[in-house]
Amino acid sequence: MATSRFVGYLESRKNIAGSAGGLVGLVLTFTGVAGPYWPVVVAGLYGAGALVAPPERPPLPDFPDASAQLDEVRGDFERLGGYLAEVELPPAAAGRLTELTGLLAALLEPGWVAEILARDPEGVHTLSRTVRQDLPEAVDSFVRTRWWTRMTPGQEPPERHLERQLTLLQEEAERLTAELRETEAGRQESHTRYLEDRSP
């Protein structure tokens, strides 16, 4: 540990700048400018160089980029599809779920749409939250509540909450789709303006 720190210091900016200052001190010594105080001059210039050198900047953590995150969400979505296939839902909720998962599948499909989405970290986060948290929680809470409702009839049907939750998730996915479309439309308009400005 101590050896690695020592080697690290030898390669550091502070040591390089300090060594450059010390070298200037040696030049002053050999030219007779420093006189009998040359050790103080050399040490002082080394210290000054080390002080003015910029501090070492530790490397940033290597977090996965948005494309890698999207690949992980795609894999989680496939696992979620296996879970949803085993759940029996009322027809209305099943229809809403089909619409929602179809839209999510289209957004996650590898290709140019996913490439656009990968450039939108907030969009990736929204999609990830839907796939990993909101959608499985909505379906699982319905399954659990439905069992209790059978034990105590007369309560509000849990499918109403499920249908409302699926509707809200569908609306959120549609907003994300609209934002991505607006991004592409803005890109197209920018290119049109660029070509117009370039015309004589």
Rank of each mutant, 00 (worst) to 15 (best):
E109Y: 02
E163N: 06
G35R: 13
R74W: 01
E182H: 09
Q133M: 12
L23D: 00
P55R: 14
Y46I: 00
G25Q: 01
A185R: 15
R74A: 03
T183A: 07
T177S: 10
R57G: 02
Y83L: 09
P39G: 04
P158K: 08
P91L: 15
L180W: 05
L23E: 01
W147G: 05
L180H: 06
L107G: 00
F6K: 07
K14M: 04
A85D: 14
D71W: 07
P153F: 11
S128C: 06
E56R: 09
L166I: 13
D71K: 13
L70M: 07
A68I: 11
T177L: 06
M1G: 09
L127M: 11
W147E: 09
L117I: 10
A138D: 01
R150T: 13
V7L: 12
L104Q: 09
A68K: 12
V24P: 01
E196D: 15
A173S: 14
P158E: 14
T101D: 02
V33F: 06
Y194D: 04
L104F: 05
R5W: 04
R160W: 09
Q69F: 00
F30R: 14
S67Y: 06
P54G: 06
Q133S: 09
V24D: 00
G75H: 13
P58N: 06
G123Q: 03
L169W: 01
L51W: 08
A106Y: 08
E11F: 08
I16V: 11
P54Y: 07
A17H: 04
A173M: 10
G186Q: 11
V27F: 07
L60P: 03
I16S: 01
S4K: 10
S67H: 07
P136K: 04
P158I: 10
T145L: 12
G186A: 12
F77R: 03
Q170A: 08
P157K: 12
S4H: 12
R57H: 10
W148C: 09
W147H: 11
E174Q: 15
Y37C: 04
L26S: 00
G32C: 07
V52R: 08
P36L: 15
L169N: 01
E86P: 00
A173V: 14
E156F: 14
L80T: 00
R129L: 11
A48E: 07
I116D: 13
V124E: 02
E115S: 09
L45T: 05
P157S: 12
V40S: 06
A173G: 14
H161V: 13
T152D: 15
E137G: 03
L10H: 01
W38F: 12
L166C: 04
E78A: 09
D65K: 11
V41K: 06
T152F: 15
R164P: 02
P158H: 11
E184P: 09
V131G: 00
Q133C: 07
A93M: 11
K14I: 02
A2C: 03
R74E: 06
P157V: 10
M151A: 15
L97H: 01
